[in-house]
Amino acid sequence: MKLQRVLQYAQSLLELSVGEGDIAVDATAGNGHDTLFLANLVGDDGYVYAFDVQKQAVDATLHRLLDNALEHRAIVLKDGHENVAKYVTKPVSGAIFNLGYLPGSDHDIITKPNTTIQSLESLLKLLKVGGIIVLVIYHGHEGGKEERDEVIRFVSALPQKYIHVLRYEFLNQQNDPPFVIALEKVKETNFTLK
């Protein structure tokens, strides 16, 4: 067995929780790779909600879906992931975030701790028991360490009786390598998220 790279591991976690007919969320659509991956998992009876604040990302994601004839399995929204609850009302089996900035675009447009945590709060309420939220945390940019620290603080305080929190990272890589945080809902939550 080989250790999986961070993005491979993120996808393998989603494969455990998202299947045919499920609802999934790509909280940071970016270039559309995760939206396409999720669209393949949910099948024709499922649906993916993909969010991004940048028109460039929305267009790239739509083109990727069209190129693979899977546009009917997803809705791509030019909106922030903090507004997920406005659009998603059914239980969610899996969600993914790639925190940071869109590769090849304006590095000043980055994910922010307050909107990421607001989105996580909404998704944890929507998440099915057995569902998984995956965060791929890129933190080598301006503002990245602040978001990393606030997200870690938030997820570390989640009660283990309801949510299992995992961190997957390579410790000997240089230049702030990305890492994964995964949240698995193991019991229906009856606590109030802060």
Rank of each mutant, 00 (worst) to 15 (best):
V151D: 02
K128V: 12
P159Y: 13
V151K: 02
S122P: 00
L127N: 04
E146G: 08
E142P: 07
E147G: 11
V129I: 14
S156E: 15
K128A: 09
E147C: 09
D149N: 15
E147A: 09
A157H: 04
E150F: 14
G130E: 01
F154T: 08
G130C: 03
I132N: 04
R148N: 08
L158P: 01
I133R: 04
E150R: 14
E147M: 07
V136P: 04
L123E: 02
D149R: 12
E121N: 04
S122I: 00
P159E: 14
S122F: 00
E121C: 05
V129A: 11
S122T: 03
R153M: 13
V136S: 06
L127M: 12
L135H: 03
R153D: 15
H139L: 02
E146S: 12
S156V: 09
L127P: 05
G131M: 13
G140F: 03
G143Q: 12
P159K: 13
V151P: 01
K125R: 12
L124W: 11
K125G: 03
E142I: 14
E150Q: 15
E147N: 09
F154L: 07
I152E: 09
K128N: 14
Q160G: 00
G143K: 11
L120P: 01
G143I: 07
E142N: 14
L124N: 10
S156L: 11
L127H: 04
G144V: 02
V134C: 05
L124Y: 10
V129P: 04
G144S: 04
G131E: 11
H139S: 10
E146F: 08
G144I: 02
I137L: 11
Y138F: 09
A157T: 07
K145G: 07
S156A: 15
S156W: 11
K145T: 14
E142V: 13
V134G: 01
E150N: 13
K125L: 10
S122H: 12
E146R: 13
E150C: 05
Q160K: 03
G130H: 04
E142R: 15
E147R: 06
L127V: 12
E147T: 13
R153S: 15
K128R: 15
I152H: 09
V129Q: 07
H139V: 08
V134Y: 02
V136L: 08
L127K: 03
L124P: 05
E146K: 14
